[in-house]
């Protein structure tokens, strides 16, 4: 990766952080982050300014209990929240605590539609997927779900 590329990526992260509002800038998705539940937990804690973010059943994570192949694991996230200018979900962060780097994808939302997103992620092994929803008032909700990743006899 050239310097230009890494700068580009950092720019993107920074832009995303700015969009998330004050206090959030300190988040620092260190690109050297080590893969561990601690690193993922740390990233989560930083989202809510160091305070332990509340685990909330307002976040529904749909993930297979057992992924057929870790290369493509469908994930759906729904946050039970209005999506009006007064109150909406601003960002949805997805962390994979066992991956080489926990950050997976961050969705940036605006007051439109519903807070319901779907994507496909890579999971290197059996692990927890952590989801954090940042609301427009800066509050953070989190939830997590474990996914078992199997190694096949011939599909592997």
């Amino acid at each position: 990766m050239s310097n230009t590329n890494s700068q580009l990526v950092r720019m993107d992260r920074r832009t995303a952080l700015k969009a998330a509002g004050a206090g959030f800038v300190a988040l620092g998705f260190a690109s050297t982050a080590h893969a561990s539940p601690e690193a993922a937990a740390e990233a989560l804690a930083k989202l809510s300014g160091g305070a332990a973010a509340a685990t909330s059943d307002k976040i529904t994570i749909s993930l297979p209990e057992i992924a057929e192949n870790g290369a493509t694991v469908p994930v759906g996230i729904t946050v039970d929240s209005p999506m009006t200018a007064a109150s909406y979900v601003k960002q949805i962060h997805v962390f994979a605590e066992g991956n080489p780097s926990p950050e997976t994808i961050t969705f940036n939302l605006t007051p439109t539609g519903t807070a319901d997103v779907n994507t496909r992620i890579r999971l290197s092994k059996t692990q927890n997927v952590l989801v954090a929803a940042v609301m427009n008032d800066g509050s953070v909700l989190t939830n997590k779900k474990e996914v078992k990743v199997t190694i096949g006899g011939c599909g592997g």
Binding site: T72, P100, S101, E103, L109, T112, G113, T114, T119, L123
Partner: peptide, 24 residues
């Protein structure tokens, strides 16, 4: 921008993203 995403290497090959908007 109505909706956006920042992706990292842990997003699967051939990225699939589904979301919703309110028609205005």
């Amino acid at each position: 921008e109505l909706f956006g995403a920042t992706m990292h290497p842990s997003v699967s090959a051939n990225p699939y993203i589904a979301f919703s908007i309110t028609a205005k």
